[in-house]
Design a binder for these strands. Structure first.
Lengths: 187, 187
DNA sequence: TTAGATTGCAAGTACTTACTTGCATAAATT
DNA sequence: AATTTATGCAAGTAAGTACTTGCAATCTAA
């Protein structure tokens, strides 16, 4: 018979368990339960746990597409699109992102997979550098300029995750760009 | 005989293994090896793995002391001390911090321990709020103002950890405060 | 020096994990 | 209708885990 269970279905379940339980905590038993299939099917399809998890992460990372991000000459608009990209990413895949960032050092094979997201970072730093060279942005390390732009989103996401009650971050892309360019001191 | 092995010595080893391998990966065998003691000693002292790891984290978190941080009326100076505090924290305990942030959701008992660091955050947001009310800082959610101030340090630390070769963040507290207040647009 | 407490060592228990094997069943292809 | 192929189920293996127990060696305080 042809396959009645799609790889996508399995990988989706695997990624979900991986994001919530971490690499070590993502047991094949739990993944099979989440996908509502037999545990043996996982091994027949993917061979071993490592292959399965890597396939799940690879598929997910492919979707981190920063299509709209490029140099247009409109500094504020470009920055807004960059921030909006990471804003959406944190909303939709925040738990995957933070899982990746904490697991990569322990799971060397994940490092390869991270190259795709890192390509996006490099692309953005090049855009920032161009605006610096034009004189629209103050000169500084482009990597520093990048983490200054989107770093708040990451910490905000983590804090919201840790303390859903009292402390809540509610950053808005437009405001972020405005303050990134003009600062917070009253004039 | 009195103890020849101090609790401190054990907790130090436990924290190191915990920070590098994560909660699940921090096996009692590995901790005992790192402390160069017998595995049984761990259980005789701390009862079980959970108690041991919690004690290690608690002791570490006690040291997150933000003594110098308070309202002085000097906005730039206060911001500098806040940034410097997290700058040092990332340098010295960055791996512990990122381990904590990723493990807390999975290990509910860690949530209690996180209250100490969160107290510091609350203290800082109150200082920021006061400067906002004075009119020295633009009004915005104090939590957002906080994550905007120190968020770049966290993302920078993570990126440096993930990609030690190409992309490197080298933020400096003084510059961070300057740009936090005045922005990056050329005037 | 003696007595009590602390440690190391060897062995073992109960549990979980990744992964395998054999067989029966069900579904799609031919 | 017959054959191929994917799946479920039951059972089992080997390894690692947290944790326990008993005993002998060792060190400190008295």
């Amino acid at each position: 018979m042809a396959r009645t269970i799609t790889d996508d279905h399995i990988l989706e379940a695997a990624l979900h368990v991986l994001a919530t339980k971490g690499y070590a905590g993502a047991t094949t038993r739990e993944i099979s339960a989440a996908a509502e299939i037999n545990e043996v099917t996982l091994f027949r399809r993917f061979g071993n746990k490592k292959n399965l998890l890597m396939a799940a992460v690879e598929q997910e990372v492919e979707n981190f597409q920063a299509g709209k991000i490029e140099y247009t000459g409109d500094l504020e608009g470009d920055l807004r699109r960059i921030v909006q990209f990471y804003y959406d990413l944190m909303r939709k895949r925040g738990h995957v992102l933070s899982m990746l960032m904490s697991e990569v050092p322990r799971q060397p094979e994940l490092a390869e997979v991270m190259q795709t997201p890192m390509t996006i970072v490099q692309k953005i730093t090049r855009i920032i550098e161009r605006y610096q060279n034009e004189g629209a942005l103050e000169k500084e390390s482009p990597v520093d300029a990048f983490v200054s732009l989107v770093g708040p989103l990451f910490l905000g996401g983590i804090i919201n995750f840790l303390q859903p009650q009292t402390l809540q971050s509610s950053l808005e892309p437009d405001e972020m760009v405005r303050r990134y360019l003009n600062g917070r001191a009253t004039k």
